[in-house]
C-alpha cells in the first residue's frame, strides 16, 4: 500500500491541532444573521438548525482552509443510534453520509484519496451539519449549520433553509 494512504485518524489529529472546540451561541428559532462569536475564533461556527435541540459538538473541519476533501468529526452523543451528515454546496446537495462513527472524510474513503481518483470535493461556500438519530430514526441532537470552504474564505454564513450566503 502506498505511503499516500494516510489513515483518517492522522488527518484528524492534524485538523484538531488547527482548531479548538467551538463555544456555541444560544439557539434561536428560526435563526437569523451570523453567529456573534463568528469573528472571535477560527473554530467552526454556524447557526443552529433548530431551537431546543441538544447540540452535537463539532470538532472539525475549520470553516476555511479545510481542503478539498475535509474530514468531518464530532463528539459522540448519548442515546444516538446513528449519525447523519449532510453537505450542501452552493448549487445544491453535495454529499451525505450515515453511520455510527464520529468522523468521516468527504467521500467516505478511510484513507487519503489517491490523486486522479474521482470523488466529491468541497466547493467554496458550502455548508454542513451532522445530526444524531435515535433507534426510531428521530432527531435527538444536531450540530449548527456550519460553513466550510476548501481554501481561505472571506467568510460566508450558513442559514438553515437557504444554504450558504
Amino acid at each position: 500500500m502506498s505511503a499516500r494512504l494516510v489513515p483518517i485518524a492522522a488527518l484528524l489529529m492534524l485538523g484538531s491541532m488547527a482548531c479548538s472546540k467551538a463555544i456555541r451561541p444560544e439557539a434561536t428559532s428560526p435563526p437569523q444573521g451570523p453567529s456573534p462569536y463568528q469573528e472571535a475564533t477560527a473554530a467552526p461556527f454556524g447557526q443552529p438548525l433548530l431551537k431546543g435541540l441538544p447540540q452535537v459538538e463539532v470538532l472539525g473541519p475549520p470553516e476555511s482552509g479545510a481542503g478539498e476533501v475535509p474530514v468531518f468529526s464530532w463528539e459522540s452523543v448519548e442515546g444516538a443510534a446513528t449519525y447523519d451528515l449532510v453537505v450542501l454546496g452552493p448549487d445544491g446537495p453535495l454529499w451525505a453520509w450515515q453511520g455510527k462513527e464520529t468522523e468521516v472524510a468527504l467521500g467516505a474513503l478511510p484513507f487519503e484519496r489517491p490523486p486522479g481518483m474521482g470523488g466529491p470535493v468541497i466547493a467554496a461556500g458550502s455548508c454542513w451539519s451532522v445530526i444524531a438519530l435515535n433507534a426510531d430514526g428521530h432527531v435527538v441532537a444536531a450540530s449548527d449549520f456550519l460553513p466550510v470552504s476548501p481554501a481561505e474564505s472571506i467568510g460566508h454564513i450558513c442559514v438553515p433553509g437557504s444554504g450558504g450566503q
Binding site: L53, G92, G137, P160
Partner: peptide
Amino acid sequence: RDIATAAGRYGYSDLY
C-alpha cells in the same frame, strides 16, 4: 422536528 431539520439542511426554505 425531523422534517424541519431536514428542510433546514437541504435548503427547503418554505418547508423549513
